[in-house]
């Protein structure tokens, strides 16, 4: 059965680009434009196998989103990858403390992203 990936980014271009590439690679893809809508979707019953989120977003940034997701009982162990332009070590550490599984820096080639997804998602 195809795995489901949940993408969260305020950039329409990023969402389209990633969704297209991931669906072509055989994944189901769900998207949200910001952290607030992402939490709403998760609480409404969405059960992704992997979450990929941007950091710099309006209303709720990625770090806060990761903390909130980890606080939900069903999503304590779901892999969460960040995909962001933030490259400094301090921010990475913040993400790690919040509960991120990995830190990815934009721009990323689809080939590299798929390798990482294989590492974090068993059975892919």
């Amino acid at each position: 059965m195809a795995k489901t990936i949940f993408l969260i980014d305020d950039s329409g271009a990023m969402l389209m680009s990633l969704r297209d590439n991931l669906e072509f690679s055989g994944f189901n893809v769900e998207t949200a434009e910001n952290g607030v809508k992402a939490i709403e979707k998760l609480m409404a019953g969405l059960n992704p196998d992997l979450i990929i989120t941007d950091i710099n977003m309006p209303n709720m940034d990625g770090i806060e989103l990761i903390k909130k997701v980890r606080a939900l009982p069903n999503f304590r162990f779901v892999p969460i990858l960040t995909l962001t332009t933030e490259a400094n070590q301090h921010k990475r550490e913040e993400g790690k403390q919040a509960g991120a599984t990995g830190w990815l820096v934009k721009p990323i080639k689809i080939g590299d992203l798929l390798k990482i997804i294989k590492q974090v998602l068993p059975g892919v």
């Binding site: 332009t85 933030e86 490259a87 400094n88 070590q89 301090h90 921010k91 990475r92 790690k96 991120a100 599984t101 990995g102 830190w103 990815l104 820096v105 934009k106 721009p107 990323i108 590299d112 990482i116 590492q119 974090v120």
Partner: peptide, 23 residues
């Protein structure tokens, strides 16, 4: 600005963090 990823080809100087890292 220094904490964000540098230009596609320019190097802002300083340490370039890895493209991806699994914790």
């Amino acid at each position: 600005e220094s904490s964000h990823h540098s230009s596609l080809s320019l190097n802002n100087g300083g340490t370039q963090s890895p493209q991806f890292e699994l914790f």
